[in-house]
Amino acid sequence: MKALDDKKLIVEENLCKGCGICVAFCPKNVLKIKNGKVLVHDIDSCIQCGLCELRCPDYAIYLGGK
């Protein structure tokens, strides 16, 4: 599980339009929409599948770290 320790989910708030696609496709319910922007509320559940990044039309969320 060491590889997951440095996981980072980066949100660029100025790019997010709050469409909710990442929230709908996240298999682990890591994300939610708050005040019209995406919010990472449960980073511990993140499995770094990258589905949020793959389908974000606004390039507002991506996996960081190594």
């Binding site: 790019l15 339009k17 709050g18 696609i21 793959l54 974000c56 039309p57 606004d58 390039y59």
Partner: peptide, 14 residues
């Protein structure tokens, strides 16, 4: 030039 002009949820960005 970002954020782009497309509506929230528009597939064009993907």
């Amino acid at each position: 030039r970002l954020p782009h002009i497309w509506c929230p949820g528009c597939g064009n960005g993907i």
